[in-house]
Amino acid sequence: MEYIDIDRVKKRMDKRLFINKMVKGIFFASAMFGLVVLAILLYRVIADSIGWISMDFLTGLLSTSAERAGIRGAIIGTLWLMAIVGPVTMILGVGTAIYLEEYAKKGKIHSIIQTNIANLAGVPSIVFGILGLTIFVRLFGLGASVIAGGLTMSLLVLPIVVVAAQEAIRSVPSHLREASYGMGATKWQTIKNVILPASIAGILTGVILALSRAIGETAPLVVIGIPALLIPVPTNVTDNFTALPMQIYYWTLDAVLVAEYANLAAATIVVLLIVLFILNSAAILIRNKFSKRY
């Protein structure tokens, strides 16, 4: 009497092996799916923008006539926004990270701040817009100005900088710290002269990533009432301004009325993506070049 039915076993084995082979292909296809969509998206945007990006487009002022419209105001507005978000998030973010890593005792306050930052990172950007609208625009009376937009954006991207700076500070080996204390340095001297220089690459990477998030964000700007009209180019922080994503938003909406606006939107997207690409490359470069291994 046979205990093993060879045919049945073989049939079952074949089936299992067949499934095994088939799913590998499916998994690979699925990993490729995202990339294919990315390629289509980039192709569409670039194809739509061909012929529309020129020096006149980059330096020209906004115009209702599609042929003459330029994005100088939006570019300068985005630069102004970065000029606020960069320093503000750097100071607040690094300060918070140093406090959490070096000063706060692992107790209630530490865990409240830490949990709070994790929660803030998950709050939808539009809710930050409402905060900015209520506090900065209305309560402080700043209007839809560079400073109101910049502060709103700073709060939005702050968690990114805090988390990056915390990781950078945590990765500084403790023997550097102890050597500094051993030489008689105080705590702040140790932080200022040893820990911050050793973690600057990670901190800068975080700030750059935060900036690249901030310049692509649209929802908070829409909510605080940033226009995309014919307004003068901002010259200081209390001026009204517009930014690249706002320009894309209005042109996309109005593409129903004027078909060429879709091309203008695509051209502005290309400019925005190039800026993002440069920023992210810089972040990778800094991380690879200046991060020391201990």
Partner: peptide
């Protein structure tokens, strides 16, 4: 003096993120 002031300043920075949450919750 610096040694004493620094933690206070840093705590203020850290507290701003808590203030943000409080601000969001209260306005809403």
């Amino acid at each position: 003096v610096i040694e004493k002031a620094v933690p206070v300043l840093l705590f203020t920075a850290a507290f701003i993120s808590v203030l943000t949450t409080i601000g969001i919750v209260f306005t809403l």
